[in-house]
């Protein structure tokens, strides 16, 4: 139970960063932290203590393996997060070209 709690705290750390930080790059990093927490949670759901790697060999039954599906899911979601992070960094670079700053309080031409 403690690990899930720690994982949830990691998620909240990311969310805190997104809400409070004013620097574009720090917001992107906080999103990364939040994403890691989600991935970690998926891996923890598939984990069994004392289990072995999930490859079917002679004399090995599925009961003593860890669940391989969350690992496959996490690989996919890491690739997706890579795409999103690249997109966000590209946007941040173009925003810097336009406004000469990374500070979000100075980047506000749109009115809410």
């Amino acid at each position: 139970m403690t690990v899930y709690l720690l994982c949830f705290i990691l998620l909240l750390v990311g969310l805190y960063g997104i809400i409070t930080k004013r620097d574009l790059i720090k917001i992107i990093l906080s999103l990364g932290i939040m994403g890691y927490a989600a991935n970690l949670m998926l891996i923890l759901f598939g984990y069994k203590s004392g289990a072995i790697y999930p490859i079917l060999e002679k004399g090995v039954t599925p009961e003593i393996m860890v669940d391989p599906l969350p690992q496959a899911l996490v690989l996919t979601s890491i690739v997706i997060e890579l795409g999103i992070t690249a997109m966000l960094v590209a946007l941040a670079v173009r925003l810097f070209e336009k406004y000469k700053t990374f500070d979000i309080t100075k980047i506000r031409r749109l009115s809410g």
Partner: peptide, 28 residues
């Protein structure tokens, strides 16, 4: 490629990513 468009896109991307992470946690 105007300044406002990058700003809107960044805002959209950050909020969209937060919701995507929530969805991923829900799937987990």
């Amino acid at each position: 490629s105007k300044a406002e468009e990058f700003e809107a896109s960044f805002k959209y991307a950050v909020m969209g990513s937060i919701s995507s992470i929530l969805i991923l946690v829900g799937i987990g």
